[in-house]
């Protein structure tokens, strides 16, 4: 098959875009110990996706107060509930943000709060279920004014 110049350019652009998206979805160069904290929380177990939803704004004008909300799809009964949800931010001076602890008395595994983000970064939520499985979600939040007194 012979390619003309136009097709080659299109191919090159396509592969560049592909490389960009893959590098975005695997940010290996985390600035702090976010991954260690997650590993300590899960005990190295694989975290699935889907059950947990992390809601955060795409762009936060003020990093001093960024509203976030976590919701976990769970019946919250005595034998099947969400024990805890860990929140970490991978670009803050300290990765830990908060850990929510739920009980069957919670009725629904939903919690929201406001957090500080020093710069544009990923916020990651990991949920620990009572049956020992984990679920994870992450959102990139663009921060225009950092929230660490800078």
């Amino acid at each position: 098959m012979e390619l003309n110049r136009r097709q080659i350019m299109a191919l090159a652009a396509g592969s560049a875009a592909f490389a960009a998206t893959t590098s975005l979805s695997f940010p290996v160069l985390a600035a702090n110990d976010a991954q260690d904290i997650i590993n300590a929380f899960t005990g190295g177990a694989e975290a699935g996706e889907g059950a947990l939803t992390l809601d955060a704004p795409e762009i936060a004008e003020n990093g001093n107060t960024v509203p976030i909300e976590v919701t976990v799809d769970s019946p919250m009964s005595e034998d099947d509930y969400v024990e805890a949800v860990l929140i970490v931010a991978d670009g803050n001076p300290n990765a830990s943000v908060a850990t929510f602890h739920f009980t069957p008395m919670s009725g629904e595994a939903l919690a929201s709060t406001r957090i500080r983000l020093a710069k544009t970064q990923d916020v990651i939520a990991v949920a620990k279920m009572s049956n020992g499985t984990f679920a994870m979600d992450r959102k990139t939040v663009k921060v225009t004014i950092g929230g660490c007194g800078g």
Partner: peptide, 15 residues
């Protein structure tokens, strides 16, 4: 942790 904003706000559910 310190990454929670000043005047910490929490919203949650209870049965």
């Amino acid at each position: 942790e310190p990454a929670v904003s000043s005047n910490p706000y929490f919203e949650f559910k209870a049965r």
